[in-house]
C-alpha cells in the first residue's frame, strides 16, 4: 500500500547542504508492520516525516524520490508531488496516515483537553457532529484501556500519567481511522512494564483494525515482538532489510550483527556488554564508500572505504548493502 523508492532528503543549513537520508527504498503491505531500526541520527524519523510531508522548510526531497501511497478509495497518491496546503495532503495526514511520537507529553498541546484534541481530529476526518465526535473519542479511550474514559476525555494531558498519555496519544492517532500508522519510538520514553503493555495494545489494535504500521525504534528487542519486516538504517541508508525473524536469526550485515550483540541479556549477565565500537559519524562528515566502514569489524581495506555497496540479495527475501555479500551475488550487482 505504500512504496518508497530512492528517498533522499537534503537540508540547506548555514554550514551548507547535508543529506541525512540517501536512496532509501522500502514498502509496507496492508495490515503488516515494518520496523525501522537504527541509532539516533540514522535518519529513521525524518524518513517517515517525509511520508507525511512534515519536514521543515529548509528540507527538500531529491528529484528521484518516489513515494506512492494507495488510499482506501483505491486511488494512488503520489506523496512526493503533493502540494503543501492542499486538501489532499490534509486528508492524507491523519485520515490516511496517522502518527504517534516518542514524547506523549510534548505531542499533546498542554492547553487543550485530551478530548478537545481528539474531537478535532475526528471532526476533520469523519463527517460527524460534536456530540458524535465526543462519543467516538470516549470509545477510543476505552479501546486503548483507559479507565473512566468519560471523565478522562475532559482532562488535560498533564493530569494523566506517562503511560496513560501514550495510550491517549494512540487513541488520538487512531480516532481519525488511518489505514497506516507511523509510530516513532512510541515506547522509548516509557517504563519497561508499561512499554510491554503499550506494545501489546498496539499489536491488538493493529489486528482488530487491520491497519498497516511503520514502527520506528532503536531497540531490536521491540522489533522482534511487533514487526513482520525490518529495515535496519545506518547514516541515512537502509543496510539490511528482510523478514524480522530471519534477520534476527541470521543477520547478514555487520551492523545488524553488532546491534544484536549489543542487546543486554539475562543469560549473559556475567559477560561484558559488547557495543558497536565507535560513534555514529555526523551527517556533515559522511564517510566515503560504505558509510559503516569506519566502525565495521570486517572492513576490507581498499574496497569498503572507496566504493559504495549496492543492494544485493544473499538470501530470498533479504537485501543487504555490504561488500561482504556482493561477491556471492556478483552477477546481479556488476554495476
Amino acid at each position: 500500500m505504500l512504496s518508497v523508492e530512492n528517498l533522499s532528503i537534503s537540508f540547506h543549513t548555514d554550514e551548507g547542504r547535508i543529506t541525512p537520508v540517501q536512496g532509501v527504498s522500502f514498502s509496507v503491505e496492508a495490515g503488516k508492520t515494518l520496523g525501522l531500526v537504527g541509532e539516533s541520527g540514522s535518519g529513521k524519523s525524518i524518513s517517515t516525516k517525509a511520508l507525511m510531508r512534515l519536514l521543515p522548510g529548509n528540507a527538500s526531497l531529491s528529484p528521484e524520490t518516489r513515494i506512492a501511497y494507495r488510499a482506501r478509495d483505491g486511488k494512488t497518491v503520489e506523496i512526493h508531488k503533493i502540494k503543501p496546503g492542499s486538501s489532499s495532503l490534509r486528508h492524507l495526514r491523519g485520515g490516511e496516515i496517522g502518527m504517534i511520537f516518542q514524547e506523549p507529553m510534548a505531542s499533546f498541546s498542554p492547553v487543550y483537553t485530551v478530548g478537545n484534541q481528539m474531537m478535532e481530529a475526528i471532526r476533520l476526518h469523519r463527517n460527524c457532529g460534536k456530540r458524535e465526535a465526543r462519543e467516538l473519542a470516549v470509545e477510543m479511550l476505552d479501546k486503548v484501556g483507559i479507565s473512566n474514559p468519560a471523565d478522562r476525555v475532559d482532562q488535560y494531558p498533564h493530569e494523566m500519567s506517562g503511560g496513560m498519555r501514550q495510550r491517549a496519544m494512540i487513541a488520538l492517532a487512531l480516532s481519525a481511522g488511518p489505514a497506516l500508522l507511523i509510530a516513532d519510538e512510541p515506547t522509548t520514553a516509557l517504563d519497561v512494564t508499561i512499554q510491554a503493555q503499550v506494545l501489546d495494545l498496539m499489536r491488538g489494535l493493529q489486528r482488530d483494525l487491520g491497519m498497516a504500521m511503520i514502527f520506528i525504534t532503536h531497540d531490536l528487542g521491540v522489533i522482534a515482538q511487533i514487526a513482520h519486516e525490518v529495515a535496519v538504517m545506518y547514516l541515512g541508508t537502509i543496510v539490511e532489510r528482510g523478514e524480522t525473524r530471519d534477520v534476527i536469526r541470521n543477520p547478514k550485515h555487520p551492523y545488524t550483527q553488532g546491534l544484536l550483540k549489543a542487546i543486554p541479556s539475562l543469560e549473559t549477565l556475567h559477560d561484558r556488554l559488547s557495543p558497536v565500537p565507535g560513534d555514529i559519524p555526523s551527517p556533515t562528515e559522511r564517510p566515503s564508500g560504505c558509510p559503516f566502514h569506519t566502525r565495521c569489524p570486517d572492513f576490507i581495506n581498499g574496497i569498503c572505504d572507496v566504493n559504495t555497496p549496492v543492494e544485493t540479495s544473499p538470501l530470498p527475501g533479504r537485501s543487504v548493502r555490504c561488500w561482504l555479500h556482493n561477491g556471492a551475488d556478483s552477477g546481479r550487482s556488476a554495476a
Partner: peptide, 26 residues
Amino acid sequence: NRLSVTAARARGVPEGKLLLKYPARL
C-alpha cells in the same frame, strides 16, 4: 518548533487554524 504543533499538523489540521489554536495561544 514544538512537537505538539507537528503532531497537530500530522492529524491534518489546516495551517491557518493550527497556527492560531496551538502555537499562537501560548
